[in-house]
Every structure is written in C-alpha cells, then in structure tokens.
Design a protein around this nucleic acid. Structure first.
Lengths: 133, 133
DNA sequence: ATCACCCTGACGCGGCGTCACTGTGG
DNA sequence: CCCACAGTGACGCCGCGTCAGGGTGA
C-alpha cells in the first residue's frame, strides 16, 4: 500500500478473487509477486497480468494457454510475428466459442421441448383421476 | 447380443462413449449391468438410462443430479409430485443455461473487440518501419 | 496474550483418460 | 500358443476449495 505494491487482500478485493487463487496462479507461474519477509507483494506488473489472466479465462483459455500468451506478450517489443500468432490463436478460440454457443442453443431448445412434454403429462393427469382432489 | 442384452463394446458404439465411461457410470450407480461371469451385459433398462444420462449431461446436470433424477423417474408410478418436482428442477436449469448463454455472448463480443484492437495494431505497424520488408 | 492476517502443505472434487496388469474365449 | 477383448486397481489432469497447523506483527 505504498501506492506501488498491494497485499494479497487488496488484490483479492480489487479483482474479486480468493487468496487461494492468487497463490495458485503464482505456483503456475502466471504471477510473480515479490516478497516482504514471507508475505507477497503484488506489483503493477502483477496487476496487469492478472487483468489479462481473467480476461483469458472468460474467453475459455486454459491457464496453461494463458501462460503461453503472457510469454508472447512479455517479449520486450511487440514483434510482428507475435501479434500475428496471437491473432491466429484468438481466431481459433472465437470459432470454438461460436460452436459452443450453437450447442448451448440446441440444448436450450431441447430442454424446452422436454419441459413442454412434461407440462402435457401434467395436464393429462389433471383431467383424469386427480381432478376430484 | 442375444437381442436382449449388449456387451460393453456394442454399447460404446451405439452411444459413442468409451468403456471407461460406462464403468464409471456403473461405479456411480447410474447404470447396473448384469454379469455373465465377470463380463458386463447391458439391458434395455441400461440403454434407456444411458439415453437419459447423456441428455442430462447436455443440459449441464452433474452426474449426481442425474442420479437423483433417475431415482425420481424410477418410482414405479409417475406420481404428480414427482413430475412437478422435475418441472421445477428443469426450470432452474433452463434459467442457468440462459444466463450462461448471455455470459458467452458477452465474452464473444469482448473477444471480437480485442481482435479488432489487435488488427489495428498490425495495420499501424505495416504503415511504418516494417513496410519496406 | 489475543487477534487478524499471512504462510505452507496436503487432500478433495468431478468426469473421466490412461497406464499396468490379469484373466478368458476362440 | 497367441490375440483380441474383457476386467480391476490406481494415479493423473484442471482449477481451485478447504482443511490443518504454524508464523508474524500490532
């Protein structure tokens, strides 16, 4: 809280994650907080990386894939080749997400059909023996 | 293959799952194949249950939830209360799936924006020093 | 001495994949 | 005798949650 670095608590509050998550990301080499004694101190760099990590997760990348993307991103200069590679990877992910969306739509339509069938069974029951109750 | 029962291979081919999956479902008490010696033989009942299991998975139910639904479904007579309960559970699932779809849509839109930004960076690069290459 | 927070193991879950090894029928 | 298939453990993966137990500073 010297303005520069943050404790684990502050990070958690800022990004809405748990301490366990931050420690896990460190173990997986996604973050690299410095130490004050045995305590972690998260730098601006960690903040930037965590932002990218959480964004990557929303897109459905695995942590290992995210680690590799961060590596690309980390090379001092944004080389042409790296940007192109990133673009390819993103395009693949997008395609998968779109497929996923189609499957989800199908499943939703299917579930609605099942629910309709259920509703019909209930209606049929009502109009027979259970009607007197 | 006496027409009545099927071997694990036949089941796998029919439902497009692996032997490991069928054994796992048995361990979780979702299926209950009979035995011929030490070999499994899957009955018509197993086929019906597996159909429901795979359908449940598409809807995003956990195997444990599916087990409970199969229990309801198994009670000899389709009691009114059971159907109503099933309807409630299905409605909750449907709501979750719809939320999930919204999140997915947001993520897709977000990824597209990121990709646009990337494309602009590449375009900017092209129009400067790398243009000569 | 208490309290609040930090730390480090280590195990658990869900849904299987993947060995390694042992029958068994043809 | 061999091969293809069946079986049973048991461990691995991913992304953490959740203890248990110990340290540290106010």
């Amino acid at each position: 809280m010297t303005g520069e670095t943050m404790t684990i608590r502050e990070m958690c509050d800022m990004f809405n994650v748990t301490p366990r998550t931050l420690r896990f990301y460190e173990a997986k080499e996604l973050l690299a907080p410095i130490r004050q004694g045995h305590k972690r101190l998260f730098t601006k760099r960690d903040r930037a990386r965590l932002t990218l990590i959480l964004r990557g997760k929303r897109f459905g990348f695995s942590l290992e894939e995210i680690r590799q993307l961060l590596e690309l991103y980390d090379a001092d200069d944004q080389q042409h080749a790296q940007l192109v590679r990133t673009q390819e990877i993103a395009a693949e992910r997008l395609a998968q997400m779109i497929r996923q969306r189609e499957e989800l739509d199908d499943a939703i339509a299917d579930l609605r059909r099942q629910m309709d069938a259920l509703a019909r069974m209930l209606a049929a029951q009502m109009s027979t023996d259970h009607a007197a109750e």
